[in-house]
Design a protein around this nucleic acid. Sequence first.
DNA 1: CGTAGCTTTGACGAGGGTCAAAATAAGTGG
DNA 2: CCACTTATTTTGACCCTCGTCAAAGCTACG
Lengths: 246, 246
Amino acid sequence: MENPLLRKLERFTKLSADDREALDRLASQRIRRRRHREDMIHEGDKPDHVNPILEGWACRYKMLADGRRQILAFLVPGDLCDLHVYILREMDHSIGTITPVKHAEITLEDFDRAIDGRHRVMQALWWDTLVTAAVQREWTTDIGQRSAIERIAHLLLELFYRLESVGLTNGNACELPLTQAEIAEAMGMTPVHANRVLQELRGMGVIELSSKRLVIPDRAALGRIAHFNPNYLHLQRDGSHLDAND
Amino acid sequence: MENPLLRKLERFTKLSADDREALDRLASQRIRRRRHREDMIHEGDKPDHVNPILEGWACRYKMLADGRRQILAFLVPGDLCDLHVYILREMDHSIGTITPVKHAEITLEDFDRAIDGRHRVMQALWWDTLVTAAVQREWTTDIGQRSAIERIAHLLLELFYRLESVGLTNGNACELPLTQAEIAEAMGMTPVHANRVLQELRGMGVIELSSKRLVIPDRAALGRIAHFNPNYLHLQRDGSHLDAND
DNA sequence: CGTAGCTTTGACGAGGGTCAAAATAAGTGG
DNA sequence: CCACTTATTTTGACCCTCGTCAAAGCTACG
């Protein structure tokens, strides 16, 4: 399969052959594999490399002192994970795998070298950072204002759009390797309640979800429940003025 | 008073005289004043300038179709507000004032010109973007996992630290021009409940809050209630290796 | 000093949390 | 491929935190 990172960044601007080659080389130089439910980076670490995900799912999370956990983001193939270690020395949260994960490991120096002089790539990476922040704002809104059913509907739609943008959907279906407990930890509710909400959504016929596979028969219907507006995902090729022409 | 933007950025790295002058010029070229409760930028806009706040408070917010509002961030002097319009064309949220606001208005071209060749300034601005994202993650955790009293305690501490970093505190006191309704909209609760929680915090003697003035007699005590860890504010001069030496 | 905006109270209700156990599904080793 | 173990999903009963609605005090300011 094509490099999912490239695929995602081209959602912003068309890269040149040289850009693509540089990124591809970067993402295939050093590859690591992680097991299921393993911490890739822990809060307090001062990592010196960036870990774009090539296969599998991970999540960004924070633990409170008393064991409560908030999942802050789901990370799927194409996600840079932790580009911010570029500037922020110390991790203020952890990253753990959800499924087995295959990811690249890029030292900051290699990263620097690859970006240097490649303005278009630099902009694309910045775009990715900003979209990540926009998604975080949407999650704040989810948890702060939406009811449990709206929240879960919203999350499922968001994940579907994001997977679609890296070519990981199949018509109206996709893999969704999350447990209900993980969905609950992300949306600030208990697993018991997440279970009840999922049953309700199934009962309404707007989703099918079993054995780690999600089907959304009618996106508009689910969107109406969620009050979903995909503008925050910025899928509109904001960087088309930077398009390469080779 | 000193330019709060400079003051904040120097929390990251020491700027050179030239850097400071460039930023200062940028932030004083075109000044606008806004009234109390006015929208500075609206969701859907495609602004072509950045609006750093020089005086007063504003907030970032999202409206849902049915009128619910989530405040996503409080913006205080020194905050860039909307640096992301640099890359993302269309606003996915709105920015409105809370008090009367004085802000600069910097066109993207001027911004470009000022940053060009000033690597240290560029890094400092990027740092600001990343800290903003880190704060957003903390808010997600607040609303998702913390109880109402923890949340409000956490918010008040965060604001206090941020104000301190731009020189807007006085010992253990600061201005806090928020209504209880605004605090509630930020923390995903009702104004009635926010009121009750504030009374409880007052009753415990960990805050004094009246006529828009906040006093935190014992920061550690309030921190214990909030489970507060300031690491996410990245106040540790992450960019000290970039320090200018003039 | 009147009026609008904020804060505070009270009574009541509901969405979602808690606890615990049962029913399934998914692994694992023999 | 079966038997056993462990993880995940589902149910049920109960209840608590926080939301709703509505009215009454305050405060601030023209």
